[in-house]
């Protein structure tokens, strides 16, 4: 139950959605774009989100696209994670998605919702960061496409009125060797202590992490250290750990020191599995 009054809007096109947002805002209201809705409902209950209107983007055809083009995968932002898992266009993304919340919840949680969420794990963004994907964004000035690295830095950087329509991934990434692991405090459902995703492209390992810092990220510095093959493996990993952004999470899921312990082991396993020795 949302303990305040909201109106619900169901646009059928991108233009309609953007227009609605604009109109509502001009009426002095606070609209939110609405995907699966799970996070908005969760945080509303706790008064951590406020809004006067929600604009449900699930009925916009572009947001539901799931296309395997010859060179490109097109993933609509309003696709439920389980739809992506079952279609499995990008195995690393499937693995990342599969570890989010639980399956029933993932029937509702959407790709865009997970990437743009306030809850800071946003684990499905990891494969998209690694694959230098493109984000299709709609706003007042139309629909544009840009590199994920331009719009996602720790969290999505959208201007008011903009929303994520699609992610596009170069198909060559879908078949690259990859690694994905999520460790929790205990058990198989829940927030991560550490989630690591990696691919190997042109002999180089790319790595992105969630749960280590209060944001997901891909770090070029870490990748450089990990790929410094002239150094002993231990030094490469120690170097990568030193290159981590700050702060390291130290919270109810686990202490910072333990997270680094877990991460370090994952990095060893990652290099082992991806053959980066």
């Amino acid at each position: 139950m949302i303990p305040f009054e909201i109106t619900y809007h169901r646009p059928r096109s991108i233009e309609e959605a953007v227009h609605l947002f604009d109109t509502l805002q001009q009426q002095g209201k606070k609209p939110l774009y609405y995907g699966g809705g799970t996070e908005i409902i969760t945080l509303s209950r706790l008064h951590l989100v406020a809004a006067d209107a929600v604009i449900d983007i699930k009925h916009i055809p572009e947001c539901r696209t799931l296309e395997f083009n010859p060179h490109e995968l097109v993933l609509g932002s309003a696709l439920p994670l389980t739809t992506l898992e079952e279609a499995n266009p990008f195995p690393l993304l499937t693995k990342a998605a599969r570890e989010v919340a639980d399956r029933t919840a993932r029937n509702q949680i959407t790709l865009g919702g997970n990437i743009c969420g306030q809850i800071f794990y946003r684990e499905t963004v990891l494969p998209l960061l690694l694959s230098d994907s493109q984000a299709v964004i709609a706003g007042k000035d139309g629909v544009k496409q840009c590199s994920i690295h331009d719009v996602f830095l720790q969290h999505i950087r959208l201007k008011p009125g903009q929303f994520l329509v699609q992610m596009k991934v170069d198909r060559s990434y879908a078949s690259l060797p990859h690694f994905h692991r999520k460790r929790r405090k205990q058990g198989k459902v829940g927030y991560p202590l550490v989630t690591a995703a990696a691919i190997k492209k042109d002999g180089q390992i790319r790595v992105a992490l969630s749960g280590v810092c209060p944001f997901p990220f891909r770090s070029k510095e870490m990748e450089e250290r990990l790929n410094a093959r002239h150094l002993p493996l231990h030094d490469r990993i120690e170097g990568a750990i030193r290159a981590l952004p700050r702060p390291i999470l130290d919270d109810i899921e686990g202490s910072a020191a333990y997270r680094l312990f877990v991460l370090k082991q994952m990095l060893f396993d990652m290099i082992d599995e991806l053959g980066g020795e």
């Binding site: 799970t38 409902i41 029933t104």
Partner: peptide
């Protein structure tokens, strides 16, 4: 036909 958590979905949806 798909299981959902009805506490996390608006009726109007």
């Amino acid at each position: 036909g798909t299981p959902i958590k009805s506490c996390m979905m608006l009726a109007i949806e």
